[in-house]
Design a binder for these strands. Structure first.
Length: 426
RNA sequence: GGAGAGAUGGCCGAGUGGUUGAAGGCGCACGCUUGGAAAGCGUGUAUAGGGGUAACUCUAUCGAGGGUUCGAAUCCCUCUCUCUCCGCCA
């Protein structure tokens, strides 16, 4: 959500920058809508001022014992006009706010201008993809063969785009979660949070998923509860409508949660394996910072996420998303992409974004030093997507015999050096 | 799930239809006082949206949304949340 007066005063420049994001703002129409809203508000408020004054008058007259029934009749009529007028005022105001809430954030000036994924810019690369002297298998073959992954039973229990993990497969997922949380809390200074996995619509509005992206979410019938699509939502909203003392910043939180996405519109993409699921597990990093620090904090947060991959010995590259490929609320986003031999390419495993005040303004999260309170900056990033890390380990560390060597850093968590075929369930 | 009690400013807390955006206290800020501090005294101390170069002014907000009324923090309805007791449950 943009600051209205700033937006209004810089309309043309903002519209020009929104074009880079692929968002066309009809400036003239916006001006008219804005003017219409203001005119409606002014008219309604003037009537209300009149009514208030008249009511006060009635109060005085009554104390003097004067009959006021005529007066009351007159004010009642004003009231009726207000009621009628307010209906359209409300409509105009809500339409205007919806429109404003539907305008994406501006990209930071350091973000490359581009149309789509192809225009993203690689900023660094770490590790050498391993050379295999045998045919590599994708995880959707390796997993079921090892007896650690089962798609058929998941489809029976729930449906497509779900998976079941067995034995060392399940333990690998759990080990990764613990490993990531330990690194971030013990070495990167984050405080662990275990938030609710269901969130309400006010929270989803705060972080920008609503009102525009409802179709990407699962909603619980007959309630205002939604399955969280990312821990960003519950964790960022922990501070909704709160004001934080400046000396508390930055606040660094990390959380493990499952994430639920409807994946509407992604039919045919990543249909095989567990790359794109309706439910996946993620460890998320969230920061609340002073505005002056946010982009330095974004670099640090991205490095914290990359650190997990370095410790696991998984090759990756980091790209900065171009203006056309960024998410709705973000001002700047780095994607970390891990090397997946099964796909012979790099695949997104973390997305680290600075939202500047865009979310904080929506969610009413402020900070203050001394007297004035203003929106702070919010950031978040995956640290990491657990399922895709699982895939990266299985594929990168696969052996000729179909087993998987467990990376050194994970062995204390998994209590195993190698993943070998598990006993059949039945 | 059943019964009851609550929700007021940064905090505590008064307020059951008429200058109440809201007493009083605490906290905070500034000033006076002081050798300095404390105490004391004085002044100020919400947010959002309109209008205005500005001084300033208008509107809304006492959990949320409706309603009654000339007028609602106060009355009525619905909902949400918190607390207590009972039931149930991991």
């Amino acid at each position: 959500m943009h600051d209205l007066s700033f937006f209004r005063n810089n309309l043309d420049a903002i519209a020009a920058r929104l074009v880079d994001r692929g968002f066309v703002l009809d400036v003239e129409e916006f001006r008219q809508a804005d003017a219409r809203r203001r005119a409606a508000l002014t008219e309604s408020e003037q009537l209300k001022a009149q009514r208030n004054a008249e009511s006060m008058e009635i109060s005085k007259l009554r104390k003097q014992g004067v009959d006021t029934s005529e007066h009351q009749q007159k004010v009642r009529q004003i009231g009726e006009r207000i009621t009628a007028l307010d209906e359209s005022v409300k409509e105009i105001d809500e339409a205007f706010k919806q429109r404003l809430a539907g305008i994406p954030n501006l990209a930071h000036e350091s973000v490359p201008v581009g149309k789509n994924e192809a225009d993203n810019v690689e900023v660094r690369r770490w590790g050498q993809p391993r050379e295999f002297d045998f045919p590599v298998q994708p995880h959707w073959d390796l997993g079921p063969a090892l007896g650690i992954l089962d798609f058929e039973r998941a489809a029976k229990v729930t449906g497509a785009r779900f998976a079941v993990y067995f034995g060392l497969g399940a333990r690998l997922e759990r080990a990764l979660i613990n490993f990531m949380l330990d690194v971030h809390t013990r070495e990167h200074g984050y405080t662990e949070v275990l938030p609710p996995f269901l969130v309400n619509s006010a929270s989803l509005f705060g972080t920008g998923q609503l009102p525009k992206f409802a179709e990407d979410l699962f909603k619980i019938e007959n309630t205002d509860y939604w399955l969280a699509p990312t821990a960003e939502v519950p964790v960022t909203n922990l501070l909704r409508d709160e004001t934080v003392d400046g000396d508390k910043l930055p606040i660094k939180l990390c959380a493990y949660t499952p994430c639920f996405r409807s994946e509407a519109g992604s039919y045919g993409r990543d249909v095989r394996g567990i790359i794109r699921q309706h439910q996946f597990q993620k460890v998320e990093l969230v920061k609340f910072t002073r505005p002056a620090d946010s982009f330095a904090e974004l670099d640090a947060l991205t490095d914290d996420a990359e650190d997990i991959l370095r410790r696991l010995g998984l090759p990756f590259r980091t790209v900065v998303l171009c203006t056309g490929d960024m998410g709705f609320s973000s001002a700047k986003t780095f994607d970390i992409e891990v090397w997946l031999p099964g796909q012979n390419g790099y695949k997104e495993i973390s997305s680290c974004s600075c939202f500047e005040a865009f979310q904080a303004r929506r969610a009413g999260i402020k900070w203050k030093t001394g007297k004035k309170a203003e929106p702070l900056h919010t950031l978040n990033g995956s640290g990491l997507a657990v399922g895709r890390t699982w895939v990266a380990i299985v594929e990168n560390y696969q052996q000729r015999d179909g087993s998987v060597v467990v990376p050194e850093a994970l062995r204390p968590y998994l209590n195993a050096e190698r993943i070998t075929p598990q006993a059949k369930l039945v």
